[in-house]
Nucleic acid binder design. Structure first.
Lengths: 237, 237
DNA sequence: CGTGCTTTTGAATAGTATCAAGGCCGGTGG
DNA sequence: CCACCGGCCTTGATACTATTCAAAAGCACG
């Protein structure tokens, strides 16, 4: 089912410049190399499952990942999107399970480091720990602001916010084509509304020529118009 | 308007045992003492405002704090509750303003440390930085799960979840009386629904004898029944 | 003892989810 | 190569839930 390719890469030769491991001291890179497991996931593959124990920390070396959570009614939601250099799955308290999983959106390379060595890495590499702390701090704020949006936005605003979020996380080409190709269903999982509503709102946006879609490709023709719609909701992206 | 009392406390004599500063090396405590400002806030006082620059990190020494964010329609929401030992306001990126503020729910003592010295503190006290990183990591997960709730729960479930959240953060006495006294309006800001709905749902819960209210006091008579209502929503508290 | 704010309750309205049907597209097998 | 099948997308009709508006009651305040 899940055919996985293992790589034994040297962090010194890694091309992902915004990886947090770059903040580690030179002496520690060989140790991390030994305790590390770099794995290639195909699009749609599960990186870790909801409600399963997490034994380490995942660094996104390449590709795109969605962090998901399935509701009691079976409705799946995307609670966060992660790209290159992002971090997944760092366990909080021992023995606590979280209803959060991660799935590859594209073919992705993820480096996994077991918790066993992480504590020593953290204590001995303050720059590394500091940068990771800042990452979590920023993501926490983003998540808090996102909570607010979900509560106060209407359908149209939620769809627009989801599009701008995609642009913020994964970027777009000069013509406005989003780098990430998501299905209507996946957009609805970000916006936290029904897929039908997403379809309706996208149609309206297309009629206004604000966006253009073809299959899973989405082009933001007039991102400034989209920003007008979400207005002064305190958008940080 | 905002009369504020300054204290010059020694972190060595501080009674708040779960303060992150306790993870600092002994040599650094005097340095932190010098760069620190311990301030007493009255109930309702603003600790820091939305969209204002934040110049340091706040540690809740005593009391209770709500982290708020006002929507474009003027609707204020409570995005997080903080108690003793919690951390507020650590700035992410420079020059980025966040639409997030903090207000004292009770008379509270908050220790403020300026960012100027914080970087050195972080780099020189890995245990401290590590514990703070873990704090943000856990809060991020909680926030993500909360986002999911807001999207999939109905009114009744949101109110119940808000009550259980209050119990989780601030605790309750043996008889189920919540330690925090919040107005209906404030509960509605946690649940992210209208105050009228909160009133309705609380009335229903009272009729079923699951809870009892008197003024701002809330008693969870049958917390197990409340947990049944939110069911298997993957509640982490 | 009034005055103003919050809470409560009811009724009307608006917005979204759900259900259902038709269309489009890709994949599969003849 | 074409026809069929199935899944996803789209669009419309309906039902439901929550918001909004409104009014009366409770409570704290001076």
């Amino acid at each position: 089912m899940h055919r996985i390719k293992k790589h034994l890469l040297d962090c010194n030769n890694c091309s992902t410049n915004n990886c947090f491991v770059k903040h580690c001291l030179a002496d520690w890179i060989p140790i991390i190399n030994l305790g590390k497991n770099c794995v290639t996931y195909k699009k749609g593959q599960i990186i870790f499952s909801e409600n399963a124990p997490i034994f380490g920390i995942y660094f996104v070396k390449k590709g795109r990942v969605k962090i998901i959570s399935t509701g009691v009614k079976g409705k799946m939601q995307i609670v966060r999107l992660a790209g290159e250099g992002h971090v997944l799955g760092h366990r909080g308290n021992k023995n606590e399970l979280y209803p959060i999983g991660a799935v590859a959106l594209d073919d992705s390379e993820i480096c996994f480091i077991n918790n066993d060595i992480m504590y020593d890495v953290f204590i001995s590499n303050p720059e590394f720990t500091y940068s990771l702390m800042m990452f979590y701090s920023i993501e926490l704020r983003k998540s808090e602001i996102r909570s607010k949006y979900l509560a106060e936005m209407n359908c149209q605003e939620k769809v627009v916010a989801a599009l701008l979020y995609l642009q913020d996380v994964y970027g777009a080409r000069a013509d406005g084509t989003l780098n990430a190709k998501l299905s209507t269903k996946e957009v609805s999982q970000i916006a936290a509304i029904s897929p039908e509503q997403v379809s309706r709102q996208l149609s309206l946006l297309k009629k206004q020529k604000f966006i253009f879609t073809d299959r899973n490709k989405i082009v933001l023709n007039q991102p400034e118009k989209l920003r007008e719609i979400v207005g002064r909701h305190g958008l940080i992206f």
